[in-house]
Amino acid sequence: MKPVAKRRKKMFVLAGIVITLALAVIIMVMMGGIEAETAQVRTGDIIQTVEDTGYVQPATKYDLQALQNAKVIQVSVDTGQIVKKGQALVVLENLDLSMQITDTRSQLNQTTASISATQAAIDRTQLELKNAAGNLERARELYAAGAMTAVDFESARLKVETLEQSIKEQTQLLESARAQESGLNQSLQNLNLKERQLTMQSPVDGLVLNLPAKQEQVVNPGTLLASVAVTGQLEIKADILSDDLGEVSLGQRVKITAPVLGSKILTGEVMEIYPQAEEKQSALGVIQRRVPVIISLHDSANLKPGYEVKVAIETSTRHNVSIIPREAVRTLKDGGREVMVVKDNRVEHRLVKTGIGDRENIESTGGLQAGEILIRDGSLDLKENTRIKG
């Protein structure tokens, strides 16, 4: 036999086998149907959520910043340390301020001494004036009686005038010195206040959350030295996509999960929604518009500031409604939705209306009845009236 004839014979044999297998499959389908996982339309509750990642942060935090140019000379605590209100955290040094305080105190001491000396001089002059005024009265009587010359009388009168002018000048000096003293006292108070600002104290009983201050570090006004958080008061900040924010409102219930919590689910509620979106870059490099949302925690369990968590904001709830698996529904080209109902072991394509949904299920608002059976995988290409194994 020639080689060409042999090849043809083999091809006919293979074609026969393929046709036989295909016929066998068709017969099997017609006799027993196709195996497919099904699900039942059930009645229950469904909760629609907006889910995203959030981060735990203190509900109340205080950032302590340098208020003047200075140098760190002492860091008295460590990050994570529990501190008391008023406890020193960081001590700074400002040599220029120290010199100003020393100079101001020296000027104040000199002014105080000058005030004392001027007051003593006024007191002495007032005594002299009192005596001179008495002498002038006697001189006036003697002059009137002709017992004193005009020269002596004029001398007594000039003595009184001179002393009165001296007291007036000394009083002006005293007032000026007292004004200077008041100004120096005010300056010293301000300088002492700035000196107290060099010791950064904890404003509350709390936890040292951040401590960027380093020994011998030179700082400028506004430099962050330490952050203290009130212990036991935590919240979650989640950046929600602006497209999802329309469904989020204050007071909505939130479920919080995290690997550190294990199977435990915490609850909270939406406490604050920022008024403005922020531009964020996703892990894939996509620029997104996100809005920060603050979530209060009813119980923080073992969460700590900085932990990453998953939040599910419950935006809508339906009770006692028809529920079907989300994967059972497929979207048609015209935007309609369809499921495959199994009726009398055969597939029936049916249009349905849907409502809210969660990760796994979706609400059926029309086209289905509780108890009906559906093909769970809506992506299967099953023709109308296809037989399904019972």
Results as ranks from 00 to 15, higher is better:
174 L>T: 11
281 Q>F: 11
113 A>S: 07
131 N>A: 13
373 I>F: 01
219 V>W: 10
62 Y>L: 10
155 S>L: 09
288 Q>E: 15
13 V>Y: 10
3 P>W: 05
352 V>F: 01
118 T>R: 03
209 L>N: 14
305 P>M: 01
38 T>A: 00
70 A>K: 06
286 V>K: 13
285 G>T: 04
164 E>M: 08
183 G>S: 12
222 G>T: 09
250 L>G: 07
72 V>I: 04
320 N>M: 08
110 Q>A: 11
351 L>N: 13
357 G>C: 02
22 A>S: 14
389 K>P: 03
170 Q>W: 05
163 L>K: 12
56 V>E: 08
19 I>N: 12
353 K>I: 04
49 T>R: 08
274 Y>F: 13
101 I>D: 05
32 G>E: 12
138 R>P: 06
152 D>A: 09
372 E>C: 00
87 Q>H: 07
294 I>V: 14
297 L>R: 04
279 E>I: 03
146 G>A: 09
287 I>M: 15
318 R>H: 13
366 G>K: 01
296 S>I: 07
165 Q>V: 05
262 G>N: 04
271 M>P: 08
40 Q>D: 00
172 Q>I: 11
130 K>D: 15
209 L>D: 15
24 A>H: 09
222 G>F: 07
168 K>L: 15
155 S>P: 05
205 D>L: 05
154 E>W: 01
386 T>H: 00
180 Q>A: 12
23 L>E: 08
324 I>E: 00
328 A>W: 02
170 Q>S: 05
367 G>Q: 02
116 S>K: 11
350 R>I: 00
119 Q>T: 15
226 A>N: 09
45 D>E: 14
274 Y>T: 11
2 K>A: 10
227 S>K: 05
339 V>Q: 03
13 V>R: 13
26 I>D: 07
177 A>W: 07
92 L>G: 06
314 E>V: 00
285 G>Y: 03
123 D>T: 11
111 T>E: 12
185 N>R: 06
14 L>Q: 06
297 L>Q: 07
255 K>S: 07
131 N>P: 10
62 Y>I: 10
110 Q>F: 08
1 M>W: 05
50 V>W: 07
69 N>G: 14
233 Q>C: 09
209 L>W: 13
146 G>E: 12
287 I>Q: 11
275 P>S: 00
115 I>W: 04
